[in-house]
Design a binder for these strands. Structure first.
Lengths: 237, 237
DNA sequence: TGGGATTTGTTCGTATGTATT
DNA sequence: GAATACATACGAACAAATCCC
C-alpha cells in the first residue's frame, strides 16, 4: 500500500494548476480548456472540470458560461478590494498571535526571514515574491485557526495574481525589514503595535504595486474606481 | 425564451441545498448521497456532485473520501474560529461603511430592522435567525466589495450551522436593538464607535450560543487552543 | 472472514451554446 | 446573416472502494 496519503486526482490537478498560475507559468487571461488540462495531467475532462471549479471558487480562475475557464485577471479595483479584506484578516492574525509566540515559533519565523533576506540578493525573479507570501501563510498557520489559514491563503494568492497582472518588478528588500519588524512586535506582545506594523506593511506593498494611476496606464483601470462609487453590485455577465 | 437569467443547473442545486441546510431541513451530520440529491432535483449525479463540491469549499458540507458527503457539524472550537474571523471581516465592513451611508441605504437598513422587530414577536422559529443573518449580508453588500460580501456570506452561513449544531433556542430581541445601534453608529459616521458596537454585538451572539467552557464541557475544546501552539496543520483524514 | 449491496470515482458520448469566417 | 468549428453542459455506464450482514 502507498504510504503517502491517497489524494484525489482532482486535488492533484487543482494544486498543480494553482502553482502554475501563481508562478506565472499561466498568465492572467490565458484560456484553460478542459481538454488540454486533462491531456496534460493524463486524466479526463471531468477531473479538469472539477479542479477548475474549485479554482474558480478561490478566485484564481474565471468561469464564463458556455465559454470556458480563464486565468483570472483582476483589475486594480479588485486588487484594492482584496487588500482591504486582507487587512482585516491579517489583523486577526496578529491579534491572535501577539504575545503567544513560542520560542520554537520565533525561531521558525526568524529563519524564514533569513531566507527572504538571502533570496532578495539573488537573481531568481519570483522566488522572493513567493517567500514573502509564505511568510504570511506561516503566520496564519501559527494561529491554529483553519478558516483563517484558508482565507489568508486565498487572499495572498489573489494578491500575487494582482501583482502579476499589474505590478512591475519591485525590489523586495524593504519588505524583509518590515517582516522583521512584525516578528519583533509579535514577540514583544503589544497587539496594537503589531497591528499597526502589519497595516503599514500592507499599505507599503500596495503602494509599491498599485501606485500608478498616472497617464499611460489603461484608462479603464482609472475609471474603475469612480464607477465603483455607484453601489450596484450586479454585473451583467 | 426565458426572461430570467440562465442559471446553470449546478448553481440551482447548489443554492437549494444551501438553503435546505441553513433552514435545518438537513441537520448537521446528515448524509448527502449523490443519487438521492440528483433524484430530488430531477437531474443526474454529475450536477449533484459538483454542487456538493462547492458546498464543501464553503464549509457547509464535509466530503469524506470514497464515503460521500455529509452536512458539516462544526464543533465549538470551530465555532470560535469562525467567529474570530468574522469579527475581523465585520470590522472591515463597518470601517468601509461608517460615514458613507446614503439616505436610501439608511432607509433600507431601518426597514430591515423593522422586519426583524416584527418577526421577533412572531411564532416562526427560524425566521428571526435568518433575518438576523441577512442584516449582516445587507451591510456587506453595501460596501460594494465583492470578495468581502462572499466571505461574510460564508461566515454567516457557517455561524448558522454552528448555532444549529450547538445553540439552544434563544430570544433574539436584544439582537434587534444591537442591529439598530449599529445602524445608528454607521450613520453617525464614527468608525471606532461602530466597530466597538459591532464587536460587542458579535460577542453577545457568541455568549448566547457558545457560552460554556465551564466544567463538564468537552475537555478537548479547551485543550485545542493550547494544542494550536504546535504549528502542524495536517489532519490525517 | 467473506461476499453481496450500495455508493462513489471516473470515463466518454451526445446535445447545446458561443465565437468566427 | 448563416454556416462552420469548437468548447462546454449534462448524462449514462463502468470500475473501484466501502459498508453491512
Amino acid at each position: 500500500m502507498d504510504d503517502k496519503i491517497q489524494r484525489s486526482r482532482t486535488e492533484e490537478v487543482h494544486e498543480a494548476l494553482r502553482l502554475a498560475i501563481l508562478e506565472q507559468g499561466l498568465r492572467p487571461g490565458a484560456r484553460l480548456p478542459e481538454d488540454a488540462i486533462g491531456e496534460s495531467f493524463g486524466t479526463s475532462r471531468t477531473i479538469a472540470r472539477e479542479a477548475l471549479g474549485r479554482l474558480a471558487v478561490e478566485g484564481l480562475v474565471e468561469l464564463k458560461r458556455n465559454r470556458g475557464a480563464f486565468v483570472a485577471a483582476p483589475d486594480l479595483e479588485e486588487g484594492r478590494e482584496i487588500l482591504s479584506v486582507r487587512n482585516g484578516l491579517e489583523r486577526v492574525v496578529v491579534q491572535t498571535l501577539a504575545g503567544h509566540i513560542s520560542t520554537q515559533q520565533q525561531k521558525t519565523l526568524r529563519e524564514h526571514v533569513g531566507m527572504e533576506r538571502e533570496a532578495s540578493s539573488g537573481t531568481t525573479p519570483h522566488r522572493p515574491v513567493r517567500l514573502s507570501g509564505e511568510f504570511h501563510l506561516l503566520l496564519a498557520r501559527m494561529t491554529g485557526n483553519q478558516l483563517l489559514s484558508r482565507y489568508i491563503t486565498e487572499v495572498v494568492s489573489r494578491c500575487s495574481l494582482v501583482f502579476a497582472s499589474h505590478g512591475r518588478p519591485h525590489s523586495s528588500e524593504c519588505a524583509v525589514a518590515e517582516h522583521e519588524a512584525i516578528v519583533d512586535a509579535l514577540v514583544a506582545g503589544d497587539f496594537e503595535a503589531a497591528a499597526l506594523v502589519m497595516q503599514r506593511h500592507l499599505d507599503a506593498v500596495a503602494a509599491r504595486t498599485l501606485p500608478p494611476l498616472r497617464a499611460g496606464t489603461d484608462i479603464r483601470d482609472v475609471l474603475a474606481r469612480y464607477a465603483a462609487e455607484s453601489t450596484d453590485t450586479r454585473k451583467p455577465d
